[in-house]
Design a protein around this nucleic acid. Structure first.
Length: 275
DNA sequence: ATGGTTGCTGCGCAA
């Protein structure tokens, strides 16, 4: 075991963002990066810019909007698309259901990393909302099994959870009244996974109110710091023991001439694990 | 003021 920097970032299109992402990987000295909303098929993923920096990449694109990936410069082993019990959205053929998977697992230097894109839910009266809850319940069941099978396993559940676990995690409770991301069932589903033994590795190092990972592109939400905390790195007990520090790379959300191209609407989240 | 922005096998729709 050696020191490892593990990050997650909803990149909102890897093809539109590859220069920003690789630029940040270098500056931030990140070893493993889980990405969400890559918005491309597997053959469209720009692997070369990552390879040039020494990163291997695995990707699973499952529709025109979404897709998850893991880039690692410390190796990638035992890649798995989706997990047992993961519900598929519809009665599509088996192959398409697998391609719809919103989870990609890989072992990087002894740490099992899951890049997760939890279903958005859209609106509380949408079938997508029920699908989201069903998906979270299946994740909890499976994750509990992983820990039961090996209580000392180093497992990271990282990504865009599309849930703000507490009122402190949104800029305005009123603004999200009646919306997804803040409902009791969603928060209970998140809490249930935490209770299974996966703790938020970042929050202890980023305390206080108005600490966010996502800001809507519109209405000057970022300059006004009107965001949500919906991107998380959850870790098994053995992984939690290794955390040395953590941060939200808020500056990567900035628009500016010192940055290449436009920003994602999410900021990266990082943990440093001791050796 | 029901607005604003970003991305896409884009021309509306999901986020």
């Amino acid at each position: 075991m050696s020191t490892m920097r593990l990050a997650t970032w909803n990149v909102n299109s890897i093809r539109a963002r590859v220069d920003r992402v690789t630029d940040w990987l270098e500056r931030a000295d990140v070893d493993v990066l889980a990405m969400q909303e890559t918005k491309c098929s597997d053959d469209q993923f720009p692997t070369m810019p990552f390879a040039a920096l020494g990163y291997d990449v695995v990707h699973c694109g499952f529709n025109q909007w979404n897709g998850v990936a893991i880039a690692s410069r410390v190796g990638i082993d035992d890649v798995e698309v989706g997990f047992a019990g993961q519900p598929s959205w519809s009665d599509k053929p088996e192959a398409e259901a697998v391609a719809e998977a919103r989870a990609l697992g890989a072992t990087c230097n002894g740490v099992r990393v899951w890049s997760l894109y939890i279903p958005n839910g859209r609106t509380v009266d949408s079938p997508h909302y029920l699908y989201k809850l069903k998906w979270l319940a299946a994740l909890r069941e499976t994750a509990a099994t992983w820990l039961a099978d090996d209580p000392s396993a180093q497992i990271a559940l990282v990504g865009d959870w599309n849930i703000a676990p507490t009122d402190e995690d949104v800029w305005s409770v009123e603004a999200y009244q009646g919306s997804t991301h803040v409902t009791v069932p969603e928060r209970s589903a998140f809490d249930a996974i935490v209770e299974t033994g996966f703790s938020d590795l970042v929050r202890p190092y980023t305390p206080g109110p108005a600490v966010f990972t996502y800001w809507d592109y519109t209405q000057l939400r970022f300059p006004k710091n009107r965001g949500m905390r919906i991107d998380f790195i959850l870790g098994s007990p053995s992984l939690a023991q290794r955390v040395e520090r953590a941060e939200i790379a808020r500056d990567e959300r900035k628009t500016g001439k010192d940055r290449v191209g436009s920003p994602s609407d999410h900021a990266p989240v990082v943990v440093t694990l001791t050796g």
